[in-house]
Amino acid sequence: MSDRKLPRMLQSPAVILLLIWMLVPLSMTLYFSFIRYVLNNLRRPEWTTPSISNWRGLGNYEFVLKSKDFLFAIQNSLLIVCSILFLTVVLGVLIAVLINKSFPGQGIVRVLLISPFFVMPAVNAVLWINMILDPVLGLQGIAVAGINETVAGLRNTPLIGGFFSLWPEFNPISFRATQTSAYAVIMMVTWQWTPFAVLIFMTSLQSEDQQQKEAAILDGASAWSQFRFLTLPHLGRPIAIVVMIQAIFHLSLYAEIEIVSRGNGNKNLPYLIGEFANNNIGAASATGIFAVILANIVAIFLLRMVGKTLME
């Protein structure tokens, strides 16, 4: 017994600290989610202090489930996360394969490719929404205006003028609008996180066995077959890892959503929690519990997927 006690005692500070770190916030959230707790209410001032006497049972959960944004926020969370995952993995694999061949300037190209990853999320959002996607002042506005001008100029030329007069006038898209703000977020986060995928895939590609490729060449495999049957299976594990890490990060996107449209037409669960937390802490906590459940469901799926590839 005694030779087991000492190691346990020595471990206990770390374990206890971690438990406090995790359990206290979680149990406080649970507690708040079952009581009426608001920051400001002139008619019922007793609700502004957390107390067991303000017990509301599952009322907060009911309130959240019935609120018009809840289902939308869950759908939107999944849409954003899945789109980003799909785009970063596809782009990451393609870019990694492309720059894995040696060419002059390889080092500089690699550094440039990684650099978006070092931009802060809020800066990234400001940069994209104001300088790139803005329909008037951004690159998008300038590009669309340029195309329209060119087309207008070509309408008067002989021969091909008739063809261009059939073209419509293009309108720039406002990415702060209700219908498009989610796409703006997907775009900017994809831009920022593709380098992460490239980095992981590139290191993995460098460990690919060259003799296998030579064997495949002799076996008559085309470049596509080599990619499909050798490179892609080889990248299975890193893809699983990239998907898992990114899913964890992107479920909690906040800064980009706030900056692009302040949640207009584009909410996810963390953003909804933020909105509730302006006043209704009880509802925010209930949403937080839903978010924990969603994160766990996603995590179980992902861990299964990663586990499967690791077992092979």
């Binding site: 066995d209 003799q211 296998q212 030579e214 064997a215 495949a216 060449i217 002799l218 076996d219 008559g220 495999a221 049957f229 050798l230 299976p233 080889h234 299975g236 092979e312």
Partner: peptide, 20 residues
């Protein structure tokens, strides 16, 4: 091209396809 020469090669590291 190597595949059209009708030769088969056996490598030192076997070069088997590990996922198949």
């Amino acid at each position: 091209s190597p595949s059209k020469r009708g030769l088969a090669m056996v490598f030192q590291t076997y070069a088997l396809y590990p996922h198949m």
